[in-house]
């Protein structure tokens, strides 16, 4: 049986987080960001600079206009939004082909990440969580462990897990039975390897099993956990693991999730995913009409 150490031992073959994303993540999360410094980091990445300018001029942010200066664009968007854009773009490039180990179609893992990010952010705002942007980034990153499993095992991963899977068992438990670890634990190890903040790694590790014990409880984990379930209901990034996951009872209670609120969260999340996909692809959903 393999274990976590085996999987991450060949660390050089694991996906690398672009330096831009790691630097901005720790700078913006520590609250010690300086607009000039952020602009300098973004400036050296041409594709990222273009994306920031495009967003700054987007009606999505309620301020359509013609802003061509990178520094002014960052001020217009705010540091937290810039962090979200960086993560979306740079993680997005990595995730588009991800999820082979879970039988996902191309693009599905990225859509699931985006859906989790928006659902977590929506929930954070509705429940008065003090940092919705952090929630967004954690929702985006929650399944990065699947990338490492893609590289290490490819399509064999799900086949071996499914051989251990029983009806009442979560897919995560079957992963542990088959491999001695699971995608959440691998994801946390990858986050540490990328030198992302410890709290992000903890959220990734426990996003399917949020601690209810007050000593370990973190509302951030609860929010990302609920966002993950909302994505499953919506059919985002559902692969060979299907819907074999639990909704933690304490999260259902604390977020007052019921049929009505769950469906509202699903529609809100899905519409934001579509908005972003349209903005990034330059498309609309007029394709429904002949």
């Amino acid at each position: 049986m393999a274990n976590l150490e085996d999987i991450i031992s060949d660390i050089d073959s694991l996906p690398a987080l672009p330096a831009t994303a790691a630097r901005l993540a720790s700078m913006l999360m520590s609250g010690e960001s300086d607009i000039t410094e952020v602009a300098e980091i973004v400036r050296v990445d041409e594709a990222l600079s273009m994306t920031v300018l495009r967003y700054a001029n987007s009606s999505m942010f309620g301020r359509p206009g013609r802003e061509f200066n990178l520094r002014e664009s960052i001020i217009r968007l705010g540091n937290a939004t810039v962090l979200k854009i960086v993560m979306q773009q740079q993680i997005g490039q990595m995730l588009r082909d991800g999820g082979v180990a879970f039988g996902l179609e191309r693009g599905a893992m990225w859509r699931g990440a985006l859906g989790g990010a928006f659902a977590a952010e929506n929930l954070a705002k509705e429940h008065g969580f003090d940092d919705p942007d952090l929630c967004f980034v954690c929702g985006l990153l929650r399944d990065i462990g699947k990338l490492a499993l893609d590289i290490r095992y490819g399509q064999d991963y799900a086949a071996k897990v499914n051989a251990c899977l029983k009806d009442s068992m979560t897919f995560q438990d079957a992963e542990r039975e088959a491999f001695g670890t699971d995608h959440a634990e691998v994801g946390a190890a990858l986050a540490k390897h990328w030198q992302l903040p410890d709290r992000m790694a903890t959220v990734i590790q426990y996003h399917h099993t949020p601690p209810a014990d007050p000593a370990d409880h973190d509302m951030l984990i609860d929010l990302v956990h609920a966002a993950d379930i909302i994505c499953l209901w919506a059919g985002l990034a559902v692969g060979y693991d299907g819907l074999q996951y639990h909704l933690a009872p304490h999260v259902k209670e604390s977020l007052s999730l019921n049929r009505r609120t769950a469906e509202i969260e699903i529609t809100a999340m899905w519409n934001r995913v579509r908005e972003i996909e349209d903005a990034m692809n330059g498309t609309t959903h007029e394709r429904h009409v002949a």
């Binding site: 639990h246 909704l247 009872p249 019921n258 049929r259 769950a262």
Partner: peptide, 16 residues
């Protein structure tokens, strides 16, 4: 129309 493994039977989005 599948269901999440266990959601306390409160949601049943698939069965609905």
């Amino acid at each position: 129309g599948a269901e999440v493994l266990a959601d306390g039977g409160h949601f049943k989005i698939g069965s609905r």
